[in-house]
Simulated scan of single mutants.
Amino acid sequence: MTETERRRTILNNVTARAAMASVATAIFLLSLKGYAAWTTSSVALLGSLADSALDVLASLVTLYGVRLAAQPADHDHRFGHGKAEALAALFQVALITASALAIGWRGVTALGSDAPIADPGLGIAVSVVAIVATLALVAYQKRIIAATGSVAVQADSLHYQGDILLNLSVIAALVLDRYLGLSGADALFGIAIAAWLGFGAFKASAHAIDQLMDKEWPEDERQRYIAVAVAVPDVRGIHDFRTRRSGTRDFAQFHMNVDRTLNIVEAHDVVEAVEMALHRAFPKVEVLIHLDPEGHTDTDDPLVEEDVTPHWFRKRA
């Protein structure tokens, strides 16, 4: 196993552990909130329960997605299976949206009801436990995201971050409705929770869609990558620089100009030197370099022929 393959295996295992931690937390919270929602009849707590139920399904989908994304490239998937993570994230978005609509409707129908909330203390205690458990999971997920860049775990983490506010809202709703006598607060907070979930679904979908649409890396990342390549002395220019993400893996490709007087062996040595430098600096990125003699024009398409290196050579000079 090469060093790059070893690193990818470690990252995949770490991502899978994060997904399993998410599943375990979701099942624990579902059981706890199920009992509390049945006992208290709170709309806000019912919304929190529905969210936890969807968390279980979404976390299972995330676990499947990261495991599928970790599979190596095969004959039918030469670029690997990384986009399975983005598909898992979009599935989560669909579940969150459905949950928001159902909770919102339940809150609207409960606005005119005078049914009291039974045992609000239980609901508050359960929400506090849920907040503590969710904070621990989110802290763990953030470390995994920083190490792997997993879009599925990131979508899962965004959902759980919303859950923290959701549980705080449940506590506020129970206190206002039962202890301060503000009738209808529970239903109103249920509607607010539904709106929050819908907004979170919209935000979570953007990153997954960017991956499926092969959106370019942020410009600062592109510039850092180019800087490593042009640091190799024999590089004369880079154009048609393209990047994309797929799960925990990144891909970059570009045309690189070298002195047209170099023979094929010398030119190949330059390519290998650039590849080695890039792999050392960006071990998660798979790079493809097309070699061009200096002054060569591939096409009349200005986007393809755009030279991304002039300012780097001015700095070098």
Rank of each mutant, 00 (worst) to 15 (best):
3 E>P: 04
11 L>H: 00
12 N>I: 00
12 N>T: 01
15 T>F: 00
17 R>M: 06
17 R>C: 02
17 R>F: 01
17 R>D: 02
18 A>I: 01
20 M>N: 09
20 M>D: 03
23 V>E: 03
24 A>P: 01
24 A>E: 02
29 L>H: 01
36 A>F: 00
41 S>G: 13
43 V>G: 02
50 A>I: 11
53 A>F: 13
54 L>K: 08
58 A>P: 00
64 Y>G: 05
65 G>T: 05
67 R>W: 14
68 L>T: 15
72 P>S: 10
75 H>T: 11
75 H>K: 14
83 K>Y: 07
84 A>R: 06
85 E>K: 02
95 L>Q: 12
96 I>G: 03
98 A>W: 15
100 A>D: 00
101 L>N: 08
101 L>C: 07
102 A>C: 09
102 A>P: 12
104 G>S: 05
107 G>H: 05
110 A>L: 10
115 A>V: 15
116 P>M: 07
117 I>S: 13
120 P>E: 02
121 G>Q: 11
123 G>R: 01
126 V>D: 00
129 V>Q: 04
132 V>C: 10
132 V>G: 09
135 L>G: 12
136 A>K: 12
144 I>M: 13
145 I>C: 04
147 A>P: 04
151 V>C: 04
151 V>G: 02
156 D>Q: 07
157 S>C: 13
159 H>P: 13
166 L>D: 08
167 N>L: 02
170 V>C: 03
180 L>K: 13
181 G>V: 11
183 S>H: 11
189 F>R: 10
192 A>C: 13
193 I>F: 03
194 A>E: 01
194 A>K: 00
195 A>V: 14
200 G>Q: 07
204 A>H: 07
206 A>W: 11
206 A>N: 08
210 D>Q: 02
212 L>R: 05
214 D>S: 13
218 P>M: 05
219 E>D: 15
225 Y>D: 02
226 I>V: 13
226 I>Y: 09
227 A>N: 07
229 A>T: 08
230 V>E: 03
232 V>F: 06
234 D>M: 14
234 D>F: 08
235 V>E: 06
237 G>A: 14
244 R>C: 11
250 D>I: 03
255 H>L: 07
270 V>A: 09
270 V>M: 05
270 V>P: 02
271 V>Y: 06
272 E>F: 04
273 A>R: 06
279 H>S: 15
280 R>Q: 12
285 V>K: 06
288 L>F: 13
291 L>N: 07
293 P>T: 01
298 D>M: 14
300 D>K: 09
300 D>G: 10
301 D>S: 09
302 P>M: 08
302 P>N: 10
302 P>L: 08
303 L>V: 10
303 L>C: 06
308 V>N: 02
309 T>D: 12
309 T>N: 11
312 W>N: 15
313 F>H: 10
